[in-house]
Amino acid sequence: MAMPQISQADQAKLQLMQEMEIEMMSDLYNRMTNACHKKCIPPRYGEAELGKGEMVCIDRCVAKYLDIHEKIGKKLTAMSIQDEELMKKMSG
């Protein structure tokens, strides 16, 4: 009784959302890999091992990339909420 009924349409929507999120995550991962490779690994391949400096660079690059990703996400959300409110005011 207390359990809310989830309709089939909602379930399909939920699954689609989940798939989109996974897709988005893998896109983020690929872009981050490209960016950090470009920034941290100079194109001279004298040896196959990662140098100490390269390792530190990669760690920081990942941390910073995800940090920026989060910050931009927050700002984008805030801006879109503001936008929506403005639109409501204009139409209301």
């Binding site: 991962y29 981050m32 091992e49």
Partner: peptide
Amino acid sequence: NCMEKYLKMNQRISQRF
């Protein structure tokens, strides 16, 4: 070397991620 290094970099990035 380029290939091996790239794979190692990928491993490290995936760990941190």
